[in-house]
């Protein structure tokens, strides 16, 4: 690898380290109930804080994965640090798959 030690790499850290550790809401998703998240997507679109993300678990070469098949996608709570516990996601979830505790 190229030696880049002479370079000044900018490293801004907006997270105030002196404030850590912080405590965030715990969001549990029951994957036996939430099986087709890319098709349902209700929690993703209800959350103003964009806490959730969805990704394809079964990537295949030369063909698209079917989001209507259970288990191809999984919804993940990524940005719990931004959750305000408005409970909108819990309300919109048709499968009652989400529980939030603090």
């Amino acid at each position: 690898m190229v030696d880049r030690s002479h370079l000044k790499v900018p490293k801004p850290t907006p997270v105030d380290l002196t404030k850590l550790p912080l405590k965030f809401p715990k969001i549990e998703i029951d994957y036996s109930k939430c099986t087709v998240p890319f098709w349902c997507k209700k929690c993703l679109q209800a959350c103003s804080q964009l806490v959730f993300q969805v990704y394809c678990k079964q990537l295949a070469r030369l063909k698209e994965s079917d989001p209507r098949e259970p288990g191809t996608y999984e919804v993940v709570t990524v940005r719990r640090d931004k959750c305000n516990m408005c409970n909108k996601c819990v309300e919109v979830c048709p499968e009652d798959a989400i529980t939030i505790t603090y």
């Binding site: 098709w39 030369l62 063909k63 989001p67 209507r68 259970p70 499968e95």
Partner: peptide, 24 residues
């Protein structure tokens, strides 16, 4: 047992790209 969402999902048409032959 299929969930409500799954059953509804199955009823919806969804375009899927599948390569017509194994490309090189």
């Amino acid at each position: 047992m299929a969930t409500k969402s799954e059953e509804e999902a199955k009823k919806t048409a969804y375009p899927l790209f599948v390569a017509p032959r194994p490309y090189s």
